[in-house]
Write a protein that binds this DNA or RNA. Structure first.
Lengths: 341, 341
DNA sequence: CTGTTAGCGCCTTCAC
DNA sequence: GTGAAGGCGCTAACAG
């Protein structure tokens, strides 16, 4: 079907030995080859469309030039646009560095250690794990054993390699904005129940920032959603029906914010006239929602890129200065927040 | 770091030969092994956490149990939620069948044949190509050579394996709905310029369906966007400024529809009171937009699943009855269309 | 039922 | 500068 061309064919065509072919192609420095030989080999290789068989190469070299991209809960992949942005950053960076990306999903219920088979089968050199549960013992174990892992999220392991956002600036700015507009009764719709690092710290930070302004965030002002617009809609309804006096909501992400807007409408309140709304993530569509969404900006693609760079550094044994990288966030002021009426 | 355990270790622990181990693990039928032996081997393998080294296995068996997922224009990955849904379907199906997914992006500008290196390096057994350009010669060549490819999209090759939607029912129903509501001046904002099978056929179908109702779709009623809400916003503005008498718009996808809504608002028209809007894709967030989006439903996840199944069938040499699979579409009526005023 | 043997295609010393 | 030889870990004949 596709004619199998081996280093043998290249060698014969260039009139040299397979050793020479290998040396030229791997830019080996152990011996000095004539430019002429080098050129002939390269020429033959390109004429034949030769690419070294990756399996053979993996076997002998012991690495795969592939990293695993582990999606902790693949069901949210189609739901929230954050992961695709991350993936884009990751795959782009990997391509630049000559790495491939193997996509793996792990589903929550699975009893066995889901990482073990990925590690043991040696299909990948290391992995980037998206949204790990912050108490995942298998992951902590993997890190303990020194396997190359980079987390987008955290398991609170002192040695972990991870890339996250310092949510404080963004949330602080949002709170400041809201309070400045006269809001005192503020609710929030986190993107999932406790257990992911994102929810936990964001909620804590929000609470702290509100406290700085003398505002309390009682548990009843927190209504959990589940990444999706649908869940955001329902959570907001519950929240607003319980506390009609809430005048502003911090949504866990921009997708949830979509649901907040429609929930408010369903209750006869419009955004921002009767309810101010702040999103989180600044997704590409967020400026174009109606009303344009005020949100906390994070650079998901950059996060992905940096995670990939970190892992590649690790794989290549380069020195790593910062093990837990924090990226900044900022408030993007648009039309979904307004003076309280 | 991670202790390397080989079939040798398993053999020794179980007190058998490596052959036996291999046979047990691959459920070889050529010989009949005693249940006791089988059990001992399995036990040892599991105790040791043994997984066959995938590189060695690939090398000797000549396949990789991996399929390539080729994203033609990776930049749209973070923009439009359609691809993530597809990916979800694909990766799920592959997992069920024991295949892995290698993610590859090809960027338009790249001069060389981007598929060649994937094929030659033998990292994958076959590929699913998302959104190929319908005139991609490299892809046609690959199909000619009998390489296992499944297209999500089409290159109009008679032998291609592809999975697409029969857009007619959905568009026909949408047109019927719009016309029934009294709309006569209808515009459209396709999701990209010509060249992708989706745009080309959808536009043709729309034109035909409108013609059935005696309505013309002049070129000036078509304003191309580029997958994103932003592009949808700008295209809609251009369209509406040029033709203020347009009362209904068919958006190329739901993300673009977001931009249509805000563009209408910016021009002082609200949806659906002053402009009816029909989306395409029925993304998870679409029911929760304000107004809830009337749209054409496609099951992207199913499309992915079927594409994966088709490829796996092909790889396993199973008979393929339908080479070009068409999935149905349907109109989902919600709140973004209304009687023309 | 088990062990021996021969590669899969490549990379890497090591002599020439 | 080049060729021969060994081995990465596994599978699949083929004999015992």
């Amino acid at each position: 079907m596709v004619p199998k061309v081996t280093s043998w064919d290249v060698a014969r065509m260039a009139g040299v030995s397979r050793t020479t072919v290998s040396m030229v192609l791997n830019k080996s420095e152990t011996v000095s080859l004539s430019d002429e030989t080098r050129r002939r080999v390269l020429q033959a290789a390109s004429d034949l469309g030769y690419k070294p068989n990756s399996a053979a190469r993996m076997l002998v070299r012991g690495d795969t030039e592939t990293i695993g991209l582990i999606i902790s809960d693949p069901a949210i992949l189609p739901i929230d646009a954050f992961i695709p942005q991350l993936m884009h950053g990751i795959s782009q960076c990997n391509r630049e560095h000559g790495y491939h990306v193997l996509l793996e999903g792990i589903t929550a219920g699975n009893s066995a250690n889901p990482y073990e088979s990925m590690v043991e089968s040696r299909r990948i050199d290391g992995m980037i794990v998206l949204n790990p549960r912050s108490d995942d013992p298998n992951l902590r174990d993997l890190i303990d054993r020194g396997y190359p892992v980079v987390l987008v999220g955290s398991v609170r392991h002192p040695d972990e390699l991870s890339v996250n956002f310092t949510t404080s600036e963004g949330i602080s700015a949002a709170v400041e904005n809201l309070v400045g507009l006269g809001h005192r009764k503020i609710g929030t719709v986190p993107f999932c129940r406790a257990g992911l690092i994102g929810t936990d710290v964001r909620l804590a930070v929000l609470r702290r920032e509100l406290a700085n302004h003398g505002i309390e965030l009682p548990d009843s002002h927190v209504e959990h959603a589940n990444f999706s617009a649908e869940s955001g809609h329902h959570a907001t309804r519950r929240l607003l029906e319980r506390h009609p006096d809430i005048t502003a909501i911090m949504a866990g992400n921009d997708t949830i914010a979509i649901g907040c807007i429609s929930a408010a409408h369903a209750l006869g309140r419009s955004v921002p006239e009767h309810l101010s709304l702040v999103g989180f993530d600044n997704l590409p569509f967020s400026p174009w929602l109606t009303p344009a969404l005020t949100t906390i900006n994070v650079d998901a693609s950059l996060q992905g890129k940096i995670a990939a760079e970190l892992l590649i550094k690790r794989l290549r044994g380069e020195p790593i200065t910062e093990r837990q990288i924090k990226l900044p966030t900022s408030l993007v002021l648009r039309a979904s927040t307004a003076q309280v009426t």
